[in-house]
Amino acid sequence: CFGYRPRPKKCIYEFTDLTRLAHESRFSVNEIEALYELFKKLSSSIIDDGLIHKEELQLALFQTPIGSNLFLDRVFDLFDEKRNGVIEFEEFVHALNVFHPCAPLEDKVDFAFRLYDLRQTGFIEREEVKQMVIAILMESEMNLSDDLLEEIIDKTFDDADADKDGKINKEEWKAFVLRNPNLLRNMTLPHLKCITTFFPSFVYNTGVED
């Protein structure tokens, strides 16, 4: 009578799902359980539907669900493997696995490349770099003259674009970050090595003692 629509059913993970996720990742079963506690917290912060919406990720990182941020959009898109506008728990684990301190460097290099390849052409293009530099300048309320901005981008491409075709391919990117490992600092989250201590409440629901 009132246009009743049932609420979407929350996905409840069975112990076998958590075990499988542990096998597919660098996390133990207890760590997957602790990550599930984090996921539940994030996915219920605005809409309690067992899925992380972009606004919920934004709320967690910026303490506000309002506004837009180019970089957060890219992070969200890479977490959202199914490209359906929400992050499911499995996608959350897959992405955070790359940020694990013990994840292979190759995975971090690849993830960072995909972050910066805004148009997903398989290259980091000069226009994309310029767009990201302008976005970070706006985000941090820094002012740079156009000349200095162009100079910074020129220098970056002088260093990174080995074949001088005006775009950075994956091999060039890999060589560039190996010379500048600081560029991957955001690709490692030390918290993930001791995730069970951040979310000790997992012990109330645990299915196994690691």
Partner: peptide
């Protein structure tokens, strides 16, 4: 010497996921 463009870009808060683990 000039900044590397990616040095600047990597400063974005949007790329810093450590905020996920912060207490409310």
């Amino acid at each position: 010497s000039l900044f590397n463009a990616f040095d600047l870009i990597s400063l974005s808060e949007g790329f810093d996921l450590s905020g996920l683990f912060e207490e409310d």
